[in-house]
């Protein structure tokens, strides 16, 4: 059990996390749940960035820095998403994604 953590472990973790995020984004009815699942996928990507940086280019911190930027942008995105959610809820009294089909052509 003392085997060292390899890149594969991190990638497996990130893959599982991404799939969980996909599953959540596809199955959750609540829009806030979908937004959370999207956050999970962001995080999976961030883990990948950090892991690749740590194992493939150990002399720099480019990957970690990029992960930090992604978090920042994700925070901003979630702010916009929650603002939209609030606006939708106020307008239609519901937060379920299946009730919104205004974009259907």
């Amino acid at each position: 059990m003392n085997a060292p953590l390899t890149l594969a472990h991190y990638m497996t973790l990130a893959g599982i996390l991404f799939l969980i995020g996909i599953f959540g984004a596809l199955t959750r009815r609540n829009i806030s749940g979908i937004l959370m699942s999207i956050e999970l996928m962001f995080n999976a990507a961030n883990i990948n960035l950090a892991a690749f940086d740590r194992f493939l280019h150990p002399e720099g911190v480019t990957g970690q820095a990029l992960a930090l930027f992604v978090m920042t942008v994700a925070a901003a995105e979630i702010v916009v998403g929650l603002a939209l959610l609030l606006a939708i809820y106020r307008g239609t009294d519901t937060v379920y994604a299946e009730d919104f089909n205004l974009l259907k052509g």
């Binding site: 996909i22 984004a25 199955t27 994604a97 299946e98 205004l102 052509g105």
Partner: peptide, 13 residues
Amino acid sequence: KDGQVQEYLMYAA
């Protein structure tokens, strides 16, 4: 059907 955004997402996935 009915412009379900999650369906689109599923096909994209």
